[in-house]
């Protein structure tokens, strides 16, 4: 019974999550790009000349059929990694992505070592 319920839920959720992947969300891309001439604002939040230009170009790129990741790649090609709010997963950034999880696992072991060995 429980298994069935889980399966049902899984199908339910996955249907939704797949539906979301198909369209490229322009606003989401704007939110993930930094407005280089502003103080800590994203392209979406800013109305500067620079932000407006980037919005136009993002729209063009979407119309060309580029995916979200391709657009980020294009932007960091032109403006450096600084423009993308989500750091890429590469050798340079590997510590950034992995270290929190290492800390989590390490902390888990630490707590485990405090526990009584026999229950």
């Amino acid at each position: 019974m429980k298994l069935n319920l889980f399966l049902l839920l899984f199908i339910f959720f996955s249907k939704f999550s797949f539906a979301a992947e198909k369209t490229v969300d322009q606003n989401l891309i704007h939110k993930n790009l930094r407005c280089l001439v502003c103080q800590g604002q994203s392209i979406s939040d800013s109305n500067s000349d620079f932000a407006q230009t980037i919005k136009l170009v993002v729209k063009d790129l979407i119309d060309e059929g580029k995916t979200e990741d391709e657009i980020y790649e294009f932007m960091s090609d032109k403006y450096g990694d600084w423009i993308v709010f989500k750091p890429q997963f590469n050798t340079q950034n590997s510590l950034l992505w992995i270290l929190p999880y290492i800390a989590l696992i390490f902390g888990g072991f630490f707590i485990f070592s405090f526990l009584k060995k026999r229950q």
């Binding site: 939110k31 993930n32 990694d81 600084w82 423009i83 709010f85 989500k86 750091p87 340079q92 510590l95």
Partner: peptide, 24 residues
């Protein structure tokens, strides 16, 4: 902490400035 100071490290060590923002 890591997200906040990591860009300082990449900038100082590899001369590459990165942004660590909400998606991270």
């Amino acid at each position: 902490l890591l997200g906040t100071i990591y860009p300082i490290f990449t900038d100082a060590l590899t001369d590459n400035k990165i942004s660590v923002g909400p998606p991270f």
